[in-house]
Structures are given as C-alpha cells and as structure tokens.
Amino acid sequence: MNGKDTELLQLAADYRDSLRQSVYFVRQLDVEAELSAAQLSLLNMVADDGLRVSAIAANLGMKVPSATEAIKRLETFGYLERSTDPEDSRAVVIRLSESGREIVTQSNTRRNELMAELLARLSPAQQECLRAAIPVIAQLNSTFTQGN
C-alpha cells in the first residue's frame, strides 16, 4: 500500500468516525421533541415524492419488516399514508399526509434553530470551513446515491 492509499484510508476512517459522532449528536439534539430523530428521518425521506417500503428500509439500513413497523407507527399517528405506485400497481408508495407535512416542518424548524445555536459557538472561520465542506459532502452523497 502506498502513502496515498494510506492517507485515503485514514481520511475514510476519520470521515466515518465524524459521521457516526454527528449521528449520535443529532439524535440527542432535541430529546424533548414529539418525534424521535429516526421517525423524523423517515418522514423527511418520503417528503418529496414518497418511496416504496423497500427503499425506505434500504435508506434506514434495516430489513423491510422493521421498516414496515416504523411506517405503521407513523401511519397510526396520521403522519403517513399509502398510495398505489403509479409505475407498478402492485406496489405501494409511502407518502406524507398533510399532518405529516406539518409536523415535519415544525420539527425541522425546531432542530434547525437548536443547531444554529450550537453553530453560533463556532468562530466565523470555523463556520466558513463547515459551509465550504457541505457541497463536498453533498457531492459524495450524490455519488453514493447514484451507485458510483
């Protein structure tokens, strides 16, 4: 293994560790909230066009039966609804209900406000570094999403 490979492996390890710590942090950001971080993540995931249960499970890193249980719980609260997939009438797409859209907006606003309070503790230079990193992370996420 050459030096460049070793550097990339270390960057990968550091990045993964940072992401893991960020996930822990974000999950604890608003423990008083009506929705858990996992529930809000699922609701945000289907906010645009909705998704099939199998895609939700894959995005959450769980098996379909576990995702189905999480979906059923949110359906019980009235936040999700099922509809026929327009591309395959045998399949179901999970979408936000109107009340789901409202709770997602409220929850995201609250969590963004809490995060902004924490980001205000960073120096302007640190805030700029974070701002500059976001497009790079978005590109990396896009590459992963596209399967490249």
Rank of each mutant, 00 (worst) to 15 (best):
R121V: 08
V93S: 07
Q146P: 01
S36R: 13
R90A: 14
L43N: 06
V64Q: 07
A116Q: 12
T6S: 11
E34W: 00
T145K: 04
A58E: 15
L74T: 03
G100Q: 07
E34V: 05
E117N: 07
E117L: 06
Q127S: 03
Y79C: 02
A57C: 09
L96Y: 04
E117I: 02
D30I: 04
R131P: 00
A116Y: 00
R73T: 13
S107M: 07
E81M: 12
I71T: 01
K72W: 03
L140H: 07
G100L: 09
P86G: 04
A58L: 14
G100S: 11
L42T: 08
L80N: 02
M45V: 01
T84H: 07
A67C: 06
R110V: 09
N141P: 00
Q10H: 15
E69V: 15
D30C: 08
E75M: 11
D30V: 02
Q39D: 15
V23I: 14
Q139E: 07
E117K: 09
L122Q: 10
A57W: 01
D48T: 10
A70W: 08
R95G: 00
A133Q: 12
D49M: 12
R90N: 11
N59Q: 15
R20I: 10
A12S: 13
V104N: 00
A57Q: 03
V53I: 12
P86E: 05
G147Y: 02
R111V: 01
V23N: 06
A58I: 09
Q106E: 14
P124H: 06
T105C: 04
C129I: 14
D17W: 09
R110H: 11
E98A: 10
S142C: 00
A91D: 09
T6A: 12
L122E: 03
V31L: 13
D85R: 05
V92I: 12
P135Q: 03
G3V: 06
N148H: 14
S41W: 06
S22E: 09
N2C: 04
N2V: 01
L140F: 10
L80C: 03
Q127G: 01
V136F: 07
A132M: 04
R27S: 06
A12Q: 09
S99K: 14
A132T: 06
A47L: 03
L11Y: 05
G100W: 07
V92M: 03
D49T: 14
P65G: 13
G3I: 10
L114V: 15
S83M: 11
P135I: 01
Q10A: 15
T68L: 05
G78E: 04
A91E: 11
R110Y: 06
N148E: 07
L140D: 01
R20N: 06
G61M: 05
R20P: 00
Q21T: 12
A12D: 03
A91V: 02
Q39L: 03
V31I: 10
R95Y: 03
V136Q: 12
V93K: 08
T145W: 01
P135R: 05
L96P: 00
V26R: 10
S66E: 11
L40M: 13
V64G: 00
D30P: 02
A70S: 15
L119H: 02
V23H: 09
G147N: 04
R95P: 01
L130G: 11
A116R: 05
I71N: 00
E34C: 01
D85H: 11
E102V: 13
A55P: 05
T84C: 04
